[in-house]
Design a binder for these strands. Structure first.
Lengths: 199, 199, 199, 199
DNA sequence: CATGAATGAGTTTTCATTCAT
DNA sequence: CATGAATGAAAACTCATTCAT
């Protein structure tokens, strides 16, 4: 009955199980036993694939990084690139809330110990950097209003994803998720726009 | 050596210690022993003041509610009311990051068990309701652009606080905190504004 | 709201509460807190009246002795005396099962520590002695069959009370309690009787 | 130093240790730590073999049932069957007093919680049922006196075992145990007998 | 590679007891 | 005489981790 798999496979399985558990049930349930049950092996076996729990947390971090590496490239128009990025994040909130939830909670951050905050900060900074770059390019090309405070806008855009995430978690959305996704982008869009357009 | 205090005092001390610990060190460190050490009593003594850990979590919830009950009232201008609210939240992020952090993480939510999400959702919904009311009133009075999508704006504003919170946690602020606070509100402000003004 | 009573009164109250608790809920519930609640005082106060829990157990023993001191005296006919004794025990089983239950369980015995078994044995021996004396006198007076094995009969009679006690606890009585009481004595009676009588 | 045994073995060891401890030292000593010491493992290890203490109590119940399943079958003569049964119980009192002691104390009953009394009652009722059946058959076959009150006799016989049990515990036996066993059955026997026989 | 038994350190909680008020 | 806060020790579990098989 025992399914034998390579360590490589098992490592991914375990990391994914960890993400699922932490995201859905919180850090308190993130135990070797739960992990093992989720993967379908016995708890002792976990440590054949990972030295200790800390190594698993690091693997989780790596996995998250992979899963988030969806920043669109190769699109000419910076605003279009931003739109893709934002919509993809908003969509991932609706589709796999666990992951986004994980990134914007302090759970792993704390779990990882002293280096945790740095790791997680780095992860989040990638998103900020991407947004900042898009905005700068758009500003240079005159695609957005000149007086836009780019730094504030970066915070606003990253925050919006969170606002959407928590609202959907709390059941506080007054409209269907997919409609809301569009409307959020619309609102954001009109904020960035050159005023003249609407004059 | 023994410091004797009333149960009432101890309960508050313990609840505050809980907030501090969860906010700063995460749920994993939220144990009777840590709580006791923080307060300066023995761990068994905790349970002379609280029936069990769950009761402590509920006390934390109450305390959070108290700390957040700062929604400004009595101000005529809805936009001014909103400004006060947003600035106070932004400021509290800078001053006592633990609390805001707590509200926008799933930590207590999970800790509180099955009813946790509801409790926390209710807490967060208050903020949303307040913002929604301000925006509606402002819209009626013609103080903001007519085509503003109020629901999207609610998410955007709540999210902004989070965006600021996480950016400051991550050391991702390019400017000093207090300046950033002002700039964020400015940016938000100009977004809500009637377009004609800038025509 | 506090009722102040003399230590003497409190001691009896506490001992009675102890009997009630141990009899009805078992030794595991016999704690200072439960005792205090039953009596209507706070747990610390228990130790103003008793040095420690052990002293309470000894008081329980004394109280049991008192409650059992109902061995009838002054009746001429030894068989009548025995009848009174047996019926009174059987009746007490029905009326206050806790006490009898206590005497025939090892609960206090164990609770009292190393001297417990002796104390309890002494208590139970009194009943045996009483029965033995009645039977001997009856034998001498030719009121019971000559070939009766008195020692065996003593065990049989004491056991019968237990048989009745446990049957009534287990809901294993096929007839109403009071009828059963009579029938048991009848059966016992006919066993002791001289055979000639029924020839 | 570590002795490794199968869970199956350990479960039996632990259940037996539980019977020994409860029987000899009482429920208060029935703790995971004592159990572990008796078996020679660490206390936490207990819970690798049993979910919790309650599961151990249930195992004790099962084990008791096994140990008591000695009701003789296949003997034609109902009185002979009864004799075997009674003598075997009396004997087990002398040989392994802990077990009988356990069945006629409220200890496990209370320990098992709300369902405890039922479980234990069921266990005791088996004995009663067996005795009742023997007596009924004997009555039908005219082997015992016609006027015998069967229900009273059932109580009397079960009680007798207890009477013997407690007397031997209390050191109240005036004769050697094995002689007493015989004499008790004799006395009982003569009680059941048809009167005519002795006329 | 996987299991299943064992462990040590920790967790929450209970409890007898002390003592300042 | 009574309370209410505090304590130390022990209870019942839990959990990461080790290792013989």
């Amino acid at each position: 009955m025992t399914t034998r798999k390579s360590t490589q496979e098992r490592r991914r399985e375990i990391a994914d199980a960890a993400i699922k558990i932490i995201g859905e049930r919180g850090l308190r349930e993130f135990t070797a036993a739960q992990l093992a049950r989720e993967v379908g092996i016995k708890d002792g076996t976990i440590f054949r694939h990972f030295k200790d729990m800390n190594e698993i947390k690091l693997a989780v971090l790596d996995r998250l990084q992979e899963l988030l590496e969806t920043a669109p490239r190769g699109i000419e128009d910076p605003l279009k690139r931003l739109e893709n990025f934002v919509l993809s994040r908003l969509h991932s909130v609706a589709v796999q809330p666990g992951i986004q939830s994980l990134i914007f909670s302090d759970q792993i951050s704390h779990a990882l110990g002293s280096e945790g905050p740095q790791h997680i900060a780095a992860l989040r900074n990638r998103g900020r950097d991407f947004i900042r770059l898009c905005l700068r390019e758009a500003a240079e090309k005159g695609l957005i209003r000149e007086d836009l405070d780019i730094e504030a806008a970066v915070l606003l855009i990253t925050g919006m994803v969170m606002g959407f995430l928590f609202a959907s978690k709390d059941g506080a959305l007054t409209e269907p998720v997919d409609e809301m996704e569009r409307r959020i982008w619309q609102t954001l869009r009109s904020m960035l726009e050159r005023k003249q357009v609407t004059a």
